[in-house]
Lab assay of single mutants.
Amino acid sequence: LETFPLDVLVNTAAEDLPRGVDPSRKENYLSDEDFKAVFGMTRSAFANLPLWKQQNLKKEKGLF
């Protein structure tokens, strides 16, 4: 999966995202380093959170 810089994904409308980016899964296009910096946890820890908590975190970080 291709990764993009944080500033390309945060608070970006679906139509302005790079081609192929799923707007409902912007976090998947962050590098592992950016993911950890944004969410303060690994991808696996994030995946283990309840869906509502994942969505709330994504909203807080501008990735929803």
Rank of each mutant, 00 (worst) to 15 (best):
L1K: 12
L1C: 14
L1Y: 15
L1N: 14
L1Q: 13
E2H: 13
E2K: 12
E2P: 15
T3M: 09
F4V: 06
F4R: 02
F4P: 03
P5Y: 03
P5G: 07
L6G: 03
L6D: 03
D7P: 06
D7A: 12
L9G: 02
L9I: 05
L9V: 02
L9D: 02
L9S: 02
V10Y: 05
V10N: 04
N11Q: 11
N11S: 10
N11Y: 05
N11T: 08
T12E: 06
T12Q: 09
T12F: 08
A13S: 14
A13W: 06
A13C: 13
A13G: 09
A14I: 12
A14Q: 10
E15D: 09
E15Y: 01
E15H: 12
D16L: 12
D16P: 07
D16S: 08
D16M: 11
D16K: 11
D16E: 12
D16C: 15
D16N: 12
L17I: 05
L17W: 06
L17M: 07
L17E: 03
P18M: 04
P18F: 01
R19L: 14
R19I: 14
G20P: 05
G20S: 12
G20F: 09
G20C: 10
V21R: 02
V21D: 02
D22T: 04
D22S: 04
D22F: 03
D22A: 04
P23E: 07
S24D: 15
S24L: 15
S24C: 15
R25P: 02
R25Q: 09
R25G: 05
K26T: 07
K26F: 05
K26Y: 05
K26P: 06
E27L: 04
E27Y: 01
E27N: 02
N28P: 03
N28T: 11
N28C: 14
N28G: 06
N28V: 12
Y29D: 03
L30N: 01
L30I: 08
L30G: 01
L30C: 03
L30S: 01
S31K: 06
S31W: 01
S31I: 03
S31F: 02
S31P: 02
D32T: 07
D32Y: 05
D32K: 05
D32G: 05
E33W: 08
E33F: 10
E33V: 11
E33Q: 11
D34A: 07
D34Y: 02
D34L: 05
D34E: 09
D34C: 06
D34W: 05
D34N: 05
F35L: 01
F35Q: 00
F35G: 00
K36P: 02
K36C: 13
K36Q: 15
K36W: 15
K36L: 15
A37H: 12
A37G: 09
A37E: 13
A37V: 12
A37D: 13
V38M: 06
F39W: 01
F39E: 00
F39L: 07
F39T: 01
F39G: 00
F39D: 00
F39V: 01
G40V: 04
G40S: 08
M41F: 04
M41C: 07
M41A: 01
T42Y: 05
R43Y: 07
R43A: 05
R43V: 03
R43L: 05
S44L: 12
S44I: 13
S44F: 12
S44A: 14
A45L: 08
A45D: 15
F46T: 00
F46K: 00
A47V: 11
A47I: 11
A47F: 12
A47Q: 12
A47Y: 13
N48W: 07
N48E: 15
N48F: 10
N48R: 11
N48V: 12
L49W: 04
L49G: 00
L49I: 05
P50F: 01
P50R: 01
P50E: 07
P50L: 01
P50K: 02
L51A: 09
L51F: 13
L51Y: 13
L51P: 08
W52N: 08
K53W: 11
K53T: 14
Q54F: 00
Q54E: 00
Q55R: 11
Q55N: 14
Q55W: 09
N56E: 15
N56K: 15
L57K: 05
L57G: 00
K58G: 01
K58A: 04
K59C: 13
K59E: 10
K59R: 12
E60V: 08
E60T: 07
K61I: 06
K61W: 05
K61V: 14
G62S: 03
L63Y: 07
L63A: 03
F64H: 15
F64S: 15
F64V: 13
F64K: 07
F64M: 15
